[in-house]
Design a protein around this nucleic acid. Structure first.
Lengths: 360, 360
DNA sequence: AGTTAGCACTCGATCGCCTCGAGTGCCAAC
DNA sequence: GTTGGCACTCGAGGCGATCGAGTGCTAACT
């Protein structure tokens, strides 16, 4: 029998997947999910009847639950075990049922004091991931400010012994990248000075993507009048810019928190998950896909498109300075995470990190 | 009845803990341990009789095993379950029974090619930990070259915007440390240049411990004639040297390998272990205690004095350049690891790392 | 004296069986 | 539309039997 809970005194709402659902059914869904988030157990009709506060008998609740099951919002692990929310159930929950409570004062204070005002961006990002994991008891992930978006400020070349040269790239936000380069010939300090002056003058104020593009262009047009020194400087700059990529582009903290959840406490699954955490590649790709969207994004189960996280949810948001997106941060946890609490935490942390990054 | 296997045709040997043990019993102990290392199961008399190759009946083997048990070298988890080596059993095994086979050619080649010749020390150390874990299928740990032992080569100050100065410290082995400092007053590039020239001249060739000591001394003796600029330079150098400490002093790779061992596959234990791996502090302390000793060191079970590793063993050795100890590396695995194979791997990796570090 | 076969015994693992209880679905009555 | 009642399902947990690997002991063998 199809779901026909549409009744006179109760409004019904259209459902994303097509079909209708009564207000009352939604209320029960919400209560069920909240209960399940709290204790992790399948929720039975008796319990839900008590929880919902509507003074209805378990039998009635069973009818409603049956409807919810037919709509694919809940499921029962086996015949005689209450219901558990499905991914779609959670989806509906976070989209329309969530009561976004204002954030706790203490919590806000805790987050605020977590960011050391004058600190370097590296350490701020680290604080962010630790705060996220500490406050939510989940795994915190932060994608560090994307190099592409950073602004070139100056470059210096420092002669080391032999033909080795230390190249130092400073970006506008005070980030420092350095790398040892091997040149074919020996360079004098004066030559190096000249090269760095030239490059700094030409590229200062451009973002790194632009710098890379121009470098490539300039190097291609070798016919352009350019003395050999500059060629070499360009080459060095090129190698520095190319090299300062990836690697520690994503910070993860509190991985071990995930071991506390029974639904994930399976050694094989954990192994795969932790391997992904140490390699970071896949996590980075995942976060990279979140960078386009605005505001807090939530991926439940397979929605992340990342098999390892099928039993997990991911709550992310971007952090930005003056409308420029710097990166993405968020948390990874089991599907049954406390979204109500986690969402504002992620949101606020992003704002605080952005604010801290703004004033170097 | 005490162990009285002393017999005419069989030599007996004194045991570290006092007591005697026959050659034959040792032979059985060795076979038992090798068997247990291979399959992880308690070893019964029938199996051992076959394994030992001495053509003795299980009944005889049982007598021997009983002696071994009385000496505390093996134990049975319960009445009818064969024997398992104890920590003392492993101890005796690694001390006197181990047949150190020469290293496999392919393996040696694999280790050799793992180190990129000209690479920076940071990346060499990373290679070492990855090789250790990859080759042994255990967790590889490397304590990075201790800062104290490094040799100061040059220092440079780079003016940034405002009163911020980027201090760059280069050590003889090509390691680069940098840090952003805030000065009270604005410094001209010329002043900074002068300061860096002075400091480089004074400290070049000294090891970092010496540099720190002299800096502290000089700063204390403010009555000494020294112009204000130098004072400030000293101050900056001081802050840089102090700051470039600890943090990533130990690298760990292949932690997840430990999840494959049933004897460790317990979520609580794993959580504690992985927390220690991310905090690193305790691991660092542990490795620090190994730095004094010479050659390959083996800690079995509680011998490490680190509760979390009670069910693990630790095989370490130091790596050195010209008799100067640079650091410690090794592997962490279950007690029943393949010592025969692991020990040479640790040993050779240390030598290769040292060799790679020698030529920057 | 050391070695061995034989034998009783122990004990975990596994299976089947049962009971218990939480929860469901359906139906008839309110 | 709601509810109580009822039969049914199914996992969890307890109980007992069986199986088999392994032990310890003893008595006989070399």
């Amino acid at each position: 029998m199809p779901a026909k809970n549409a009744q006179s005194g109760d409004t019904t709402m259209p459902l994303p997947g097509g079909g209708q659902i009564s207000e009352r059914a939604l209320h029960f869904l919400k209560a069920l999910i909240e209960r399940h988030i709290r204790d992790g157990q399948p929720v039975g009709s008796r319990t839900l009847a008590r929880d919902a506060g509507l003074d209805l008998s378990p039998a009635t609740v069973r009818n409603v639950m049956s409807d919810l099951e037919e709509l694919g919002l809940v499921a029962s692990p086996h015949t005689s075990a209450g219901r558990v929310p499905t991914a779609s159930g959670y989806r509906l929950f976070v989209d329309s049922l969530l009561t976004v409570s204002p954030m706790d004062e203490d919590l806000l204070a805790q987050l605020r004091t977590g960011f050391e005002p004058g600190a370097e961006s590296k350490s701020l990002v680290e604080s962010a991931s630790k705060l996220l994991s500490g406050v939510t008891q989940l795994a915190g992930v932060v994608m560090v400010p994307r190099h592409e978006r950073e602004v070139f400020q100056q470059i210096e070349f420092l002669p080391l012994s032999g033909t080795r040269v230390l190249a130092i790239l400073v970006t506008a936000d005070g980030e420092v990248h350095n790398r040892i380069l091997h040149t074919e010939e020996h360079c004098t300090p004066a030559q190096l000075q000249q090269a760095s002056n030239y490059l700094t003058e030409v590229f200062s104020g451009l973002d790194m993507g632009e710098v890379r593009r121009r470098l490539l262009d300039d190097l291609k047009q070798t016919h352009r009048s350019m003395d050999e020194l500059m060629m070499r400087a360009m080459n060095m700059a090129q190698r520095l810019v190319e090299g300062a990529e990836h690697q520690d582009d994503v910070l993860i903290a509190g991985q071990t928190n995930l071991m506390d959840f029974e639904e994930l406490a399976n050694v094989e699954r954990l192994k795969a998950l932790f391997q992904a955490f140490t390699e970071k590649r896949q996590i980075l790709d995942l976060l990279d896909r979140c960078i386009a969207a605005d505001g807090v994004q939530i991926f439940i189960g397979q929605e992340s498109g990342f098999e390892l996280l099928d039993d997990c949810s991911l709550v992310t948001t971007t952090y930005r300075v003056e409308d420029q997106i710097l990166g993405v941060l968020g948390v990874i946890g089991p599907r049954r995470m406390d979204y109500q609490r986690v969402i504002p935490v992620v949101d606020v942390t992003a704002r605080l990190l952005a604010a801290a990054l703004r004033q170097p």
